[in-house]
């Protein structure tokens, strides 16, 4: 039965896989995330974190006091949009290194 229950739909992690991971010694939420891959897909854990934490809490008898570290960007963002943020936020090391090399040649 638990092999047919999906806890993480993005990465196809089933209840059986989470149970197996806990049995094999993954007793904290960060280790469980890494071992099963839950929460690393499109939704970044928005749908599955609570479900996985509940299973973990029920098995080890202790509720995790903190969720997994949230990873930005909170919503998937296109590279082109991030690239267009420009000098205000980003640094262009190629341009600066070229400029200093040109200066050296003069």
């Amino acid at each position: 039965m638990s092999a047919k229950v999906l806890l993480c739909r993005c990465e196809d992690v089933t209840l059986a896989e989470v149970e197996h991971a806990i049995e094999s010694g993954q007793h904290d939420i960060e280790s469980l995330k890494r071992f099963t891959g839950f929460g690393t897909g499109w939704c970044q854990g928005k749908q599955c974190l609570i479900a996985c934490a509940r299973v973990l809490a029920a098995r080890v008898g202790e509720l995790p006091l903190a969720p997994v570290t949230p990873r930005p960007p909170v919503h998937p963002m296109p590279l082109g949009m991030l690239a267009s943020l420009g000098d205000a936020v980003s640094v262009d090391r190629v341009a600066s290194e070229r400029a200093s090399e040109d200066e050296g040649e003069r």
Binding site: R71, L79, G80, L82, A83, L85, G86
Partner: peptide
Amino acid sequence: LATYARSLVRAVPSLTRVKVLRQW
């Protein structure tokens, strides 16, 4: 994220519309 995206899109322009899911 902005620095990486700028450099990556310069190297491979066809990645412009590909989305970043997570950073650490």
